[in-house]
């Protein structure tokens, strides 16, 4: 038997409207959730950031969180929002960043607040880079992420950063690093204390 039920224009309009809203919300969620890309020891990176190979979803994610990013021949980007224990990075805590040689001509680690901009502080320490760290005999280096300047260590200030994330940029990466991010030994991020308490 044929269905002869007539749809009220208002019901139809409401159905379309709700559908559009659900679609917009799901679209927003899909391009803002997480960091996208693949995880490498807690750092997230994508091989197609900035390139024409990025699909629509990744392109939209990059537009929101990293507009005008370079492609991997010039720079590779890794971002993390958590420490090595999986806890969110928080302004009131201090973290040690420890790593070895990174496969590029130059690298830096920068702090970003949740709004994707630099934290609003005047500590003149928005990042630390390859020229500031002092590798030991085995090539290992240490730096700090902290709201106050630590003694005798390169640092990036997290003052006024709230729950923050950090981005590692490796400029002019080696061919091997470009081809396989998994070959990169990523720096570790270890929480030292929060509010001065270990």
């Amino acid at each position: 038997m044929a269905d002869t039920t007539k749809t009220s224009p208002w019901v139809f309009a409401a159905t379309i409207s709700i559908g559009l809203i659900v679609g917009l919300l799901s679209g927003w969620w899909s391009i803002t959730r997480g960091l996208g890309g693949e995880s490498y020891s807690g750092w997230y990176g994508s091989r197609v950031t900035g390139s024409a190979d990025a699909g629509p979803w990744l392109r939209a994610r990059v537009a929101i969180s990293g507009l005008l990013a370079l492609d991997k021949s010039q720079a590779i980007y890794f971002t993390r929002k958590t420490d090595d224990a999986g806890e969110p990075l928080r302004e009131e805590c201090s973290y040690r960043v420890n790593g070895g040689a990174l496969p590029g001509q130059w690298w830096s680690v920068t702090v970003y607040a949740a709004d994707n901009y630099l934290p609003l502080n005047d500590d003149d320490a928005l990042a630390f880079d390859a020229t500031e760290v002092s590798p030991d005999a085995s090539g290992q280096w240490n730096a700090m992420l902290a709201p106050v300047r630590p003694e005798g260590s390169p640092w990036a200030s997290t003052r006024n950063a709230g729950n923050f994330d950090i981005t590692l940029r490796i400029y002019q990466p080696s061919a091997q690093a470009q081809a396989d991010f998994a070959t990169i030994t990523m720096p570790k991020v270890t929480k030292m204390n929060c509010g001065g308490k270990a």
């Binding site: 139809f12 159905t15 379309i16 409207s17 709700i18 559908g19 559009l20 809203i21 659900v22 679609g23 917009l24 799901s26 679209g27 927003w28 899909s30 391009i31 629509p56 979803w57 392109r59 939209a60 990059v62 537009a63 929101i64």
Partner: peptide, 19 residues
């Protein structure tokens, strides 16, 4: 069907529009 079509248009439209 109308609901799903509207949701798909909203989702894909936003993703394509944002960049």
């Amino acid at each position: 069907l109308a609901f799903l079509a509207a949701a798909a248009i909203g989702h894909v439209g936003l993703v394509l529009f944002m960049p």
